[in-house]
Design a protein around this nucleic acid. Structure first.
Lengths: 207, 207
DNA sequence: CGATCAATATGACAAATGTCATCTGCAATT
DNA sequence: AATTGCAGATGACATTTGTCATATTGATCG
């Protein structure tokens, strides 16, 4: 089963990393990089185009314009596309892991870890295994995102610096309600104010 | 002048990108990656070690632990090491460009731009030229950082979610003074409140 | 149908924040 | 010694937040 070549699709918005990863993976004789996408949407478009070379592995970043890697994974799951998804992202946002697992990804790697581990991870996933960066195992089953949808949205806008009123307008809520949500969010996150709450939520990948 | 091989030192804390860039550059027959450092300090140590292979080009990220790429460039300038420095970093912090130029770097590239441009940029710098990512030329001579030292510090702490009082304690200032500083900063940055001001300053690399 | 629950609103009050004018030292300048 | 300038502090006042208790409105479910 290891004699057949593994067809890889890369999705990464940082052009430099995208190209460099392509070069790195092309060094492996059993890998073929069939497509390099700049965002999740491009990747999905390619995957759904039956006239293209079939893909075995999707290696994707999370934070990308148009469509994030997590949304891509969710789409792949919903459409039941015959590919394994492998997330390659930055450490900080630990909350992403859970969402990624829920989206049925086969692996979750960190850009921090040495590049030598990448090929092995891809082969493992290709043969049906799961891979999770060891750094994440520790605090993996940390607190799950305690925020409601509205709280999350309000925090996101707070993070941008919007006032209560401005947030209310955007979300079609009264200013008072927004204040309540932010107050709730802050107490859930044990923050002293909306700003700290937004920062915490952001760090955990909950925004 | 193009027949001699160009010796490159890479400095980048993201292991994955470091390794991948190594693979990418090794594809070029006239390039040799002689060392891969995880931070500025490692890079500098190598450069100062006369028993090591001499380096022509230092390709470095900015935000790294131990020593940033800008600090590395400054050291190289001060020690008058015979290498050209090329910065490779992320778009957002546009204020970095000025500091980098002051540190005498020969080039400033973006991780966003396509990897195909990298080799050409390195060759150009190796032969004495300067390279600046076109995206930056536009807003390069944008407003210089208008913040005073205290305003900057106050904004940094605001960004972390600290209250006026807490900031005052950290900076040994009265709460009122902190409020004044933040008020000033906000008006300088045309922000409606401290949070927005902190966000703007952060985006511009002023924190 | 009535009970229950969640989402949204309101009102009230304390606390924090934004704005501005003004004061106090202290250091540099002339 | 007199002047200027600047960092820091104060005080006053309007506005915005934080907190909490209590409506209102639908949807849901037994």
């Amino acid at each position: 089963m290891s004699s057949k070549t593994i067809n890889i699709l890369l999705a990464e918005d940082q052009g430099m990393l995208l190209g460099a990863l392509g070069a790195l993976l092309d060094l492996e004789p059993d890998f073929t990089v069939v497509y390099k996408a700049n965002n999740g949407q491009q990747a999905l478009d390619y995957l759904r185009d039956s006239s293209q070379t079939p893909v075995n592995i999707v290696l994707t970043d999370i934070e990308m314009p148009e469509m994030t890697g997590i949304e891509l994974a969710e789409q792949i799951q919903q459409l039941q596309l015959p590919v394994k998804t492998l997330i390659l992202t930055t450490f900080s946002r630990s909350g992403y892991l859970r969402r990624a697992m829920d989206a049925g990804v086969s692996g979750y790697l960190l850009k921090e870890s040495p590049s030598e581990e990448l090929a092995a991870a891809i082969r493992k996933v290709a043969s049906g295994g799961k891979v999770i960066a060891p750094e994440l195992m520790a605090n993996a089953w940390m607190e799950r995102d305690p925020l409601t949808d509205k709280e999350r949205q309000a925090l996101r806008l707070t993070f941008e610096g919007l006032s209560t009123e401005a947030i209310g307008e955007k979300l079609f809520l009264s200013a008072g309600t927004v204040r309540n949500y932010l107050s709730n969010a802050a107490s859930k996150l044990q923050a002293n104010n909306r700003v700290e709450a937004a920062r915490i939520a952001h760090q955990n990948g909950w925004l």
